[in-house]
Design a protein around this nucleic acid. Structure first.
Lengths: 142, 142
DNA sequence: CTCCAGTTGCGAATTAGTCGCAACTATGCA
DNA sequence: TGCATAGTTGCGACTAATTCGCAACTGGAG
């Protein structure tokens, strides 16, 4: 257990938002300045393998980077709004049941699951609805 | 509708495996040699927006690339075996119900969903089981 | 046949992630 | 308390995936 790993683990655990490698590096450097980008990649890979963190894509709303969060007892899924970029987390027993069904029917030993949903959050859907009512004819020419 | 787009759409529709951009480009070039890599990226982005294809990561088993497949009526999920790399597709009404629950509870207008599961397929899990029985002491030195 | 909005090819730029290797350090042990 | 060393790190160059600007091209409407 090195100072670098400690700093990275603490940073992920105490993070309030989903962190990509770049922000994880910046924030971890506030605790321990001697951290290199490569170490972040290696540590994140390690923690994934140990099942301590989960990797997310968040529907690639902001480029191709990956995000990391501590793995909790109950898996949750991520709803990403294509309009405002908001990320909503959501957990439900139905998801746990689905996982059990997947494992049972396919005889598959599940280690990680990643369920991401893209669409419009309620307020963005409402805004879009309103816009359509106001301009009923977007038509062939804008 | 250009020749390039036609070739790309046909290639995806008739594909038997999940295609990444590189293989999509190669296969589409057999129909229409004048296709550029950038066009593949742009077309894939277009088709995603139109809801004609889905984008997959397949748990990044083979690097960071993305895979594409035609969107079918019923969403299916992908099981990726970390050991042998096999991809299993699976659809179940439980997934459709889960999606409805997600949409209802969060008032979220779902446009795409991506459920990927990583773990061990039945045969790889069996092999691993066997290996553990034969070498009960992997111990500190391999 | 002409026109032009939209599409494409090209090649360079950007971004995310990986690698090899020498230097360093946490930890177990004398 | 110091030594040995397995494992970790920093560095910087590298690879792979993707994006971009712009000039040339083209499908299809008129």
């Amino acid at each position: 257990m090195t100072a670098q790993r400690r700093a990275l683990i603490e940073t992920i655990q105490e993070a309030t938002a989903h962190l990509d490698v770049a922000s994880l590096l910046m924030q971890a450097r506030e605790r321990e300045p001697r951290i290199n980008r490569a170490t972040v990649y290696r540590t994140v890979e390690l923690l994934k393998g140990l099942g301590m963190i989960d990797e997310l894509d968040l529907m690639h709303l902001n480029g191709e980077k990956h995000y990391y969060e501590v793995k909790t007892q109950q898996d949750h899924l991520h709803l990403a709004c294509f309009e405002c970029g908001q990320i909503i987390e959501f957990a439900t027993p139905a998801f746990e049941r689905l996982k059990q069904e997947i494992a049972a029917i396919n005889q598959f030993a599940i280690q990680v699951t990643r369920l991401e949903v893209g669409g419009l959050c309620s307020s963005c859907a409402a805004k879009k609805e309103k816009r359509l009512q106001q301009e009923p004819k977007p038509g062939p020419r804008g």
